[in-house]
Structures are given as structure tokens and as C-alpha cells.
Simulated scan of single mutants.
Amino acid sequence: MASSNKHVVFDVPSTPPSSPASAPRLRAHAIGPRIFGYAWMEAGEKEYTYLSMSGRYVPYSAVSRALFYRTLWQAGVADPRAFATDDDRDFLLAAYRQLRTRPGVDRCFRTLRDAGYTVWALTSGDVARVSGYLRDGGVELPPENFVSCDSIGVGKPAPAVYEHVLKKFPAEGLDAWFAAGHMWDASAARQTGFKGAWISSWEKDMCSEIFGDMDVVADSLPEMADRIVAFEEQLAGEE
């Protein structure tokens, strides 16, 4: 029988928000919707993390809402509040809440569960939104398998966040993986005792010269699951 102390914790993947309605207006200012969404999300993650480090935890959703006009200004819009409205911002934030899961998430979770792993989600977002992503993608996780930084009051990549999750698992015979689309996330988890798995579909470049190596690297979620299972089978064969 497969060990019950095998776990894979996912940072639930997402992509930055953009919309067909906003794209022409952004392009009129020579701003690509994709790079704007990336800048908005990355700025949000930075400020969210800095607030957490300073002891003033603010939910990520509130941080990203506040940074909308600042990001427009940094993108080259001279008068952001004349260019866009709160309704525009709220439309994009609502679109962000309706993102779909990455292709293959159902097969990924099924492969891991068939190999004896329990699947978890660790997120900087709220549990209702994140569980909605998965449910809309045809995947269910028990509520007790979701962990939100909002409930801890500390943001990733603080070691305490990953340690909080590790403490949920018995120490004896533990096989724990952290899977993410951000190298900073997977590498931080790896420093606290997780094995690390990185999917390349968002960042593309590992930047391993600053983040180090990963135990598993994959281009898709199904491939990631297959490689995690193969990694452990190889270790078992060497013992």
C-alpha cells in the first residue's frame, strides 16, 4: 500500500488579468495588455510581500486594487485616472477572479493521487476564489486541503508560511513536494524542507543562477506529475 504521508502542495497557477475591452486603449499608448498585466501582478506581489515583511499584512486582493493607477502611470499613462476609471479596474479584477486553471490540472492531480499523494493548495489569494478556479476546471479539493496566507497573516516567501504547511504532515516517512510556476516560490519552499517542482509555462526562464536548481522541471502540469512520480520511483529503486 502506498504511504499516506506523501504530499504535493501547489501554488495555484494563474495569469495576469487583461480583457479585449481594455486592449485597444492600452495599445493606443503603446502598452501591451500582457506586459501591463504582468507589471500589475508583479508590483502587487512585491508590495504585498514588503507589507508582510514590515509586520503589516494586507490581503493581496487589496494590494493589487490599490496599485492599478500606479501601474498605469509606470507604463507611461500621464494621467491614469483620466485614462481609466474604478469601474475599469473592478472589471479587470473581476476577470482575474474568473481565471481558468492551467491545461491538464485534472490529469496532474489524478496521476499524483493514483501514486498515493495528497494534493494541497497554498495561496496568497482567498480560498473561495482559488477553490472556484479549480472547481471551474473540473477539479475539487477538500476545504481542509487549502491554506491561505490570509489565515496565517504572513505572506510568501517567508519561511514561516511553508513551515506552517509542513507542520500539518507527520515527520516520519514524509515525502513533501512544493509545486509552483514561480521560481522564487518553489525555491523558497525548498529551503524549508520541501522538494521543489517548477512549471515553465509562465516564467519560461529558470534564472537558476539566482534561484538554484529544482528537483523537477516541467513544461506542463501532467509532465510535472509524471516527473514527481518518476523521481520518487527512482529514489526507491536506489535504496
Rank of each mutant, 00 (worst) to 15 (best):
F109L: 09
K6D: 05
A78P: 00
K167S: 15
P17G: 02
G181T: 13
V105S: 05
T111Q: 13
A84T: 11
S3D: 15
E42Q: 04
A179I: 05
A171D: 14
Y96G: 12
E42G: 08
V9S: 07
R25K: 13
A230I: 13
W40Y: 09
V130K: 04
V63G: 03
Q191A: 15
Y48I: 05
F169P: 02
V12P: 12
D114E: 14
R100I: 12
A218T: 06
L122W: 02
S220Q: 03
I210P: 03
L67W: 10
A176G: 05
A176Q: 04
A39E: 12
A158Y: 01
P33W: 01
C108D: 02
L51Q: 14
L174K: 15
P13V: 08
A94G: 10
P222F: 00
A2S: 08
A236H: 09
L67Q: 01
V58F: 05
M224K: 11
L51H: 09
M214P: 00
F178Q: 08
F231K: 04
G116K: 00
A2R: 07
Q234E: 15
L93T: 06
A186V: 07
A121N: 05
P157W: 11
Y57C: 00
P59Q: 10
D150V: 15
V217C: 09
F36K: 01
E238T: 10
A160N: 01
D226L: 13
W40R: 02
W198E: 02
F109M: 11
K195W: 05
A186S: 03
W40P: 06
G76M: 04
R102N: 02
E209Q: 06
S151H: 15
R97T: 12
A179F: 08
S200N: 11
Q191L: 14
K6H: 08
G44M: 09
D114N: 11
E42F: 06
P170L: 10
E42D: 13
R27M: 15
N5S: 12
N5M: 06
R102S: 14
P143T: 07
G196D: 14
D79W: 08
L122T: 01
D219R: 00
